[in-house]
Simulated assay, not measured.
Amino acid sequence: MGNWRKYLYILTGLFVGAVFSQFPEFHQQYFQRLGGTLDELDRQVEALDNRAASTDLTRYNYIRHLINSKDKAAQMEGEHLTNLLRRQFDVQQAITSLENASPQMMAILVIYHLDVNTAKATAEVYKPAVPLTISGATYFGIGFVIGYILMAFLLIFFPRRVLQSEPD
């Protein structure tokens, strides 16, 4: 194998490793935003409970009353409130799952419980960090291996078309 290939494998591994090493920081920022989302949902559900109590109904009877109304606007509000409760449950489940995640399971659980809007908002203001944690080093190592193998496969399948060999 030519020297340029070794360097290319290593550089690709380092690049992909550096990208992967950012996952724990992204996870931390995403988790904070998810917590803020849950706080807001909890406030909205508390307001719902107060409205329901003011009509001497439970939360669910209040929503059922709206959904069963002949008024289309009330029905839509009932559906909105049902979605609000579902979203609160989903975000709470995601937070509980992510709080208890081992570093090895973190990426899988983020993907499984991904809240697309929160992830997009996190990515828009994401601040990279130097990964000085075991988790960051682990993701760097995984990324390095993936990058190294990826470049090896690319050069196997496209040996001369992607890069022309230089004489050693």
Rank of each mutant, 00 (worst) to 15 (best):
Q22K: 06
R59T: 04
Y112W: 14
L41V: 00
E124A: 13
L14M: 14
T96M: 06
I95V: 07
I95P: 05
L48E: 08
L84F: 07
A119W: 06
I63E: 04
L114Y: 00
I146F: 13
R51N: 11
M105S: 15
T12W: 02
R160P: 04
L57W: 01
E99H: 07
E99V: 11
V116K: 02
P159V: 03
L109F: 01
G36K: 06
V45G: 06
G35H: 08
L163K: 06
V91T: 09
N83E: 11
P128N: 07
V125C: 05
T37L: 15
Q44A: 02
A53R: 10
A121I: 02
H113M: 02
F26A: 11
L85A: 03
Y62C: 00
Y139R: 05
I156F: 14
L84N: 02
A137P: 07
H27G: 09
D56F: 09
Y139M: 08
Y148P: 03
I156Y: 12
V125H: 04
E46F: 13
A73R: 07
V145N: 01
Q29L: 00
F26K: 04
D71C: 14
L41Q: 00
M106K: 06
A107L: 10
L34S: 01
V125D: 03
Y126M: 00
M76P: 13
Y30F: 07
T58P: 07
H27F: 04
Q88K: 11
L84I: 03
R64D: 15
P131I: 05
I10T: 06
Q75H: 09
L85S: 05
V91P: 06
A101W: 01
L66V: 06
P103Q: 00
D49S: 14
E46T: 12
I95E: 00
K70Q: 09
V91W: 03
V116N: 09
L155E: 03
L8Q: 11
Q93F: 02
A121K: 06
I63G: 08
L155Q: 13
G136M: 01
L132N: 03
M106I: 05
E46Y: 10
V162K: 12
M1E: 13
L11V: 12
T133L: 08
V45M: 03
L98Y: 00
D49L: 12
L163S: 04
H27A: 10
S135T: 15
V162M: 14
L84R: 02
F15E: 01
S135R: 08
Y30P: 00
I134T: 13
